[in-house]
Amino acid sequence: MSNGTTGVDEARNALGKRLRELRVAAKLSGKELAESLSWVGSKVSKIENGKQTPTDDDIKDWTRATKSEDQTASLLAALHNLELQHAEWQRVLKAGMKSHQLTLSQLDEQTKFYRGFENTVIPGLTQTPEYARARFAQVVMVHRVPNDINEAVKVRMQRQEMLYRPDKRFHFVITEAALRYRLVSPEIMIGQLDRLMAMTSMRNVKLGIIDFKTQYVTDPRHGFWVYDDHLVQFESYSAEINLRQPQEIELYTGIFEHLAAVASYGSEARAIISRVMHELAGEADDAGS
């Protein structure tokens, strides 16, 4: 996976290559195909080069125009697999945020061992209702999706009940930066840090904090989650990325181990959280006086 490509990019490129082969076999130029479908000229090139993901209708039109309808089902299957990998938020959140939380609940049922790294936000499974509410409010603002914040918070809190199930294990690693980013008010953040403090002594939860003075082995590029050994999930601004290829899971598992190895646990983690809480409390006092 060189040059920063992921399984998602590879799958999109492979789909584009298959569509190009059908066009060439039909002896059509890109311009001719675009004109026959009343598309802008650049659309064919973008799809073939993996720069644009085709829709179901695009594929049906393409196979009809290239007289290769026998390939439609196979190409649609490849597209839907790609959409599972690269799940655009506009599509994922169309039915609301509660619906997406319920989808994650189904994944929870199958998962025994969670490994989560976050460098900017507090992990969803450890969030207080107030912190979660602020995160969902941002989603509504950025993606202009239905406002079902109350329902989404409720389902996220229900998901957290599994933290107490003896058949599941959790290993969270969070950077000190995530404890300090001003994504919520100081009062809400103090409550959130208090919650993390309590989690450092939970039986089946391992919580590590990487403080600012730590020397990293692998850079903390973005947050991600490893579900058992079958799925890696992370979020970009535009999509939820789901990686299922063994080499990708192996890569992320190794990166998680590097990050977990330099984190502080137990009393050392509590000392970092306590330090941040103390500073925030001082700010809240200053603001109130």
Rank of each mutant, 00 (worst) to 15 (best):
N3Y: 11
T5R: 08
D9L: 05
A11C: 12
N13D: 09
R18D: 15
R18K: 13
L22K: 09
L22I: 07
R23H: 06
A25P: 02
K27P: 00
L28P: 05
L28V: 08
K31C: 09
L37Q: 11
W39H: 12
V40M: 14
V44M: 07
D57K: 08
D57A: 10
I59W: 03
R64A: 07
S68C: 03
Q71V: 00
S74H: 13
S74A: 13
L75P: 04
L75E: 00
L75F: 00
N81S: 14
E83L: 06
L84G: 14
Q85E: 15
H86K: 11
E88Q: 05
E88D: 01
Q90F: 14
R91L: 07
V92C: 08
Q101L: 00
S105Q: 10
Q110R: 07
K112Y: 04
K112L: 05
R115K: 12
R115N: 04
G116L: 11
E118W: 06
N119P: 08
V121M: 10
I122M: 10
I122C: 04
P123F: 02
G124T: 05
T126E: 11
Q127A: 00
T128Y: 00
E130C: 01
E130V: 09
A134P: 06
F136L: 11
V139Y: 10
M141C: 06
R144E: 15
R144M: 09
I149C: 04
I149Y: 03
N150A: 11
E151I: 15
A152Y: 04
V153A: 07
V153C: 09
K154W: 05
V155K: 04
R159N: 04
Y164W: 14
P166R: 03
K168Y: 02
R169H: 13
R169K: 14
F170H: 00
F172S: 07
L179T: 03
L183M: 10
V184E: 07
S185R: 00
S185W: 02
M197I: 02
A198N: 12
A198V: 04
M199Q: 10
M202N: 08
M202K: 15
K206N: 05
L207P: 01
D211A: 09
D211P: 13
F212S: 09
F212Y: 11
T214R: 12
V217T: 10
D228H: 00
F234D: 02
S236Y: 02
E240A: 13
I241V: 15
P246L: 07
E248T: 01
E248W: 09
E248A: 08
E248Q: 11
E248V: 00
E248S: 12
I249G: 13
I249F: 07
L251S: 07
L251I: 09
Y252F: 15
F256L: 01
E257S: 14
L259S: 01
A261P: 12
S264L: 14
G266S: 06
E268L: 04
R270G: 08
I273V: 09
S274F: 15
R275H: 07
M277I: 11
M277V: 13
M277Q: 11
M277K: 09
H278K: 10
H278I: 12
L280S: 01
L280Y: 14
A281V: 08
D285S: 15
A287C: 12
